[in-house]
């Protein structure tokens, strides 16, 4: 490969190695430029403009006024915002741990061969492909305290009815249930891909040594699967932090503010109260939280890779 490019570019360029490599790469720029322009306009411009906006007091239809870091000072003292952070962390912790456990179990199950495995797997991933608004509506109907099918089910197994999303103390666990239902399949798929890539030799050796299935799972599967577990953990954490559609459709942050996560708070500030400057500051803080968590998780991933 190096030989053919060298002849194409000529001997002169070959004398200056770094530059030659540069020219070689540069020939592919035009493949990226059109897409780059779109990314610049729809993704990078909003990032920069948001930071600029976050330093203004700007209500839609009103005057725009430079206020420096005043929006951020206001955020730090805004109890409603601080509580939304706590709620987001609570929601995220549950929406990460439960899908990780269930997703691992499901991946282990689907890694085995059994009749109708393809069909079962397809059904299992349907929730994550379905339109979130549509499934959120069905869940809302199931949560109805008097007529909902879930309370009827509880009654059948002898449990007291629940208020589901209609009471402050049950609303977040209930929303977590929907999130778990929705996104466990993605965790399962990532881990299933990991399981498919594992070598079989260690298992055979373990079998000869008389290891129980649980021992080979604990000492072979889990360590080998660690990098995939971390990837799934990163993706799940970020997605749980960002969760919006189902929460918004089912509760809109209510009852009161009992399920108001950062994302819902942000939406209300921006598009219900039109405090666009203040909302921009929320975006910056929210984004920083996400990036920080992502960095911690990526660092974990690097460590897992190094030890593996």
């Amino acid at each position: 490969m190096a030989g053919s490019t060298a002849t194409l570019d000529g001997a002169a360029a070959a004398a200056v190695t770094p530059r030659r490599r540069n020219n070689y790469a540069r020939r592919y720029w035009w493949f990226v430029v059109p897409c780059g322009v779109v990314v610049l306009g729809t993704i990078i411009f909003p990032w920069i403009f948001t930071i600029y906006m976050s330093m203004h007091d700007f209500k839609l239809g009103g005057e725009r006024e430079w206020v420096g870091h005043a929006n951020y000072v206001k955020l730090v003292t805004d109890e409603r915002f601080l509580y939304s952070i706590l709620r987001t962390l609570y929601f995220t912790a549950l929406s990460v741990v439960i899908p990780m456990v269930l997703g691992l179990l499901a991946a282990l199950a689907f890694a085995r061969k059994f009749p109708m495995r393809g069909l079962a797997r397809t059904i299992f991933i349907l929730p994550m492909m379905a339109t979130p608004v549509a499934v959120a509506l069905v869940w809302t109907m199931m949560f109805h305290p008097q007529l909902g099918v879930l309370n009827w089910l509880l009654q059948q197994v002898g449990l007291p009815p629940s208020m589901w999303v209609y009471a402050p103390d049950t609303v977040i666990p209930t929303l977590v249930m929907v999130e778990v239902w929705h996104w466990t399949p993605l965790v399962m798929l990532i881990l299933l891909g990991g399981l498919a890539s594992l070598p079989i030799d260690p298992y055979e050796a373990a079998k000869i040594d008389g290891a129980t299935p649980f021992q080979s799972f604990w000492h072979i599967t889990l360590p080998l699967l660690a990098p995939f577990l971390v990837v799934a953990l990163i993706i799940r954490t970020i997605d749980a932090l960002k969760a919006f559609d189902t929460i918004y459709v089912i509760t809109q942050g209510g009852p009161g503010t009992a399920s108001e996560t950062i994302n819902i708070f942000l939406y209300l500030q921006a598009f219900a109260y039109y405090n666009l400057g203040y909302a921009s500051a929320v975006v910056v803080v929210f984004f920083s939280i996400i990036i920080m968590l992502a960095m911690v998780l990526l660092w974990t991933r690097a460590r897992v890779k190094a030890s593996g």
Partner: peptide, 24 residues
């Protein structure tokens, strides 16, 4: 570096694009 931009786009909440684009 280009791949990193795409990755960050993946983790940015969709809502955060909306304020600037809405105004634009």
């Amino acid at each position: 570096k280009a791949a990193v931009v795409i990755l960050i786009a993946r983790i940015t909440p969709g809502l955060s694009y909306l304020i600037p684009l809405f105004l634009l």
